[in-house]
Design a protein around this nucleic acid. Structure first.
Length: 498
RNA sequence: CGGGACGUAGCGCAGCCCGGUAGCGCACCUGAAUGGGGUUCAGGGGGUCGCGGGUUCAAAUCCCGCCGUCCCGACCA
């Protein structure tokens, strides 16, 4: 367990540590509205970089962006039975359109105008399947209109009981892809294609290793045929669902009458997929890499990749050092490096180090009189190492090389940590011991029965994260359920989750 | 909605038991010195002590009511 020391003195456990990192890095803050989050510029920049990378991958696979309304008629949500059951308990409703003055003061100064009640309440979207497939029904007539591959960057609202910055807030930002296909096989391939894109993004950009697989009945998306998920292990050994991709089958097509005419002339329902990742990934990024000094941002998603901190005493030194620092910053920026030159004279260098470390900057270049005399800058990595870099030879290359190494190192460290906290082929006794102890990913045989899942959850708090894809499966899949010892139908990965 | 705790400066808290001028740390402002890992010193600003009522000469403190927040559970990207 991590212990924040200097971040703030009050941090005691992982949750507080996490909160401190988010606040000290200036990623986000609580808003006056309960359960809602303000994303500050530094945090929002990470989201922009995430958007840029993902959006490029979606477009490269033929997807296009569109935008659908925030408000969904209540009746739309009700059309798909499982879907409404899944979301009914956590929606915000718009029921009126006007307030009126009461003549009183303070909070009672206005009240709802009862004459403005809507005939049908509007749901603030918790997800957009219903409104999007209502439109798909208008747009899709023929097999020639398929596949329809859309994505939306949007905010959604889910009225959760308990919230936490980035991980679970009442309103959050995400992307939701929605596609329609002529065949089940195409829809399945699409759901899988997106899962692979998500995995690539999370591993190569976020340096966050994930295991992929399919969700059990009890954990799948409300209204889906099948849900695929990516699961990452945080530093407190709890799992984070980092994204999902659903094969919706024809459930929504039937509910919204999305039909197309085949080449042969018949009328068929389309096959849908939907998939999404959210600002929750920023929380995952924090909980995967950061330490007691604050955020550790993987270089590919770091808002500031390199910070230059000049060091001086006299005005003369200040002039010389600033000139070199500024020139280095210019060279790096020209090479596409996101660089910041901290010329402030209100802070001592040490204070600047702490500030930029808390904000996660992967590489700091210190430029002082001693460095100039030696024709070098001192490069300090956020991950700890310090080394001089020559000013006259290949500085830019050395910096970009270091950023690459940091990116790779973060991924390897996270993967090693995950593997160190995974056990395979567990027995019931080992499982109980594991979950009561440090926790992590427990791989074991699973009979597939919901009763076992429910019992395990009640006794240990652990849930099936995924039935893992072949590349994550143990070499020998256990023959019996680790809990009830009935024949195993598959291997499952259990963990306590966020 | 069930169980527990807490509301005092922007943030974190002490003071409450035992009523008597509202405090500490951080942050903020001014000035000087300092400057290779959170600088130091001096000065300064900032509060209807969650809200309402009661007891009292006197309430942050005691009593009653309300409101709010957080934590644990159920729900969850």
């Amino acid at each position: 367990m991590l212990q924040a020391q200097k971040i703030t003195p009050r941090a005691k456990d992982f949750s507080e540590w996490y909160n401190d990192v988010v606040m000290q890095a200036e990623l986000a803050d609580y808003s006056p509205v309960r359960g809602c989050m303000v994303i500050r510029p530094h945090g929002y920049r990470i989201w922009e970089l995430m958007q840029e990378a993902l959006d490029g991958m979606f477009k490269a696979t033929g997807h296009r962006n569109a935008y659908f309304p925030l408000f969904i008629p209540q009746s739309f949500l009700a059309r798909e039975a499982e879907h409404v059951e899944g979301f009914a308990k956590e929606v915000a409703l718009v029921t009126h359109t006007r307030l009126k003055a009461t003549g009183k003061s303070g909070a009672q100064a206005v009240t709802v105008d009862p004459s403005s009640a809507l005939e049908e309440p509007l749901v603030v979207r918790p997800t957009s399947e219903t409104i999007i497939y209502a439109m798909f029904a208008k747009w899709i007539q023929s097999y020639r209109d398929l596949p329809l591959l859309l994505n939306q960057w949007a905010n959604v609202v889910r009225w959760e009981m308990r919230t936490r910055l980035f991980l679970r807030t009442t309103e959050f930002l995400w992307q939701e892809g929605h596609t329609a296909h002529a065949t089940e096989a195409e829809a399945e391939a699409e759901a899988r294609r997106i899962l692979a894109i998500y995995r690539r993004f999370q591993e190569e950009w976020m340096a966050m290793p994930v295991i992929t697989g399919v969700k059990t009945e009890s954990e799948k998306f409300a209204g889906a045929l099948r849900t695929y998920s990516l699961e990452a292990l945080m530093q407190d050994n709890r799992a984070l669902q980092a994204g999902t991709s659903h094969n919706l089958g024809q459930n929504f097509a039937r509910a919204f009458n999305v039909q197309y005419q085949t080449a042969a002339g018949g009328l068929e329902y389309v096959w849908n997929t939907s998939w999404g990742v959210s600002t929750r990934m920023i929380g995952g990024l924090v909980m995967t890499h950061s330490d007691d000094r604050g955020l550790v941002a993987p270089p590919r998603l770091a808002p500031v990749q390199v910070v230059i901190v000049p060091i001086w005493k006299s005005d003369d030194e200040r002039a010389r050092v600033s000139e070199v620092a500024t020139q280095v910053a210019r060279d790096l920026a020209a090479a596409g490096v996101r660089v910041e030159c901290d010329l402030r004279d209100t802070l001592k260098p040490g204070a600047k180090y702490f500030e930029w470390e808390a904000k996660g900057v992967p590489l700091r270049l210190e430029v002082g009189p001693r460095d100039l005399a030696a024709g070098q800058v001192t490069a300090a990595r956020r991950t700890g190492e310090k080394a001089p870099l020559r000013l006259d030879a290949g500085l830019v290359g050395a910096v970009t090389g270091a950023l690459g190494e940091i990116q790779d190192g973060l991924f390897r460290a996270a993967r090693d940590r995950r593997e160190a906290h995974s056990i395979r082929g567990v027995t019931r006794v080992q499982f109980l011991e594991f979950m009561q102890g440090t926790g992590g990913f427990a791989y074991g045989g699973f009979c597939g029965r919901g009763e076992c899942e429910a019992q395990i959850k009640a006794e240990t708090g652990a849930t099936v994260r995924v039935l893992p894809d072949p590349e994550f499966r143990s070499p020998e899949v256990p023959k019996t359920c680790m809990w009830c010892e009935a024949p195993s139908v598959t291997e499952a990965v259990w963990a306590q989750a966020y």
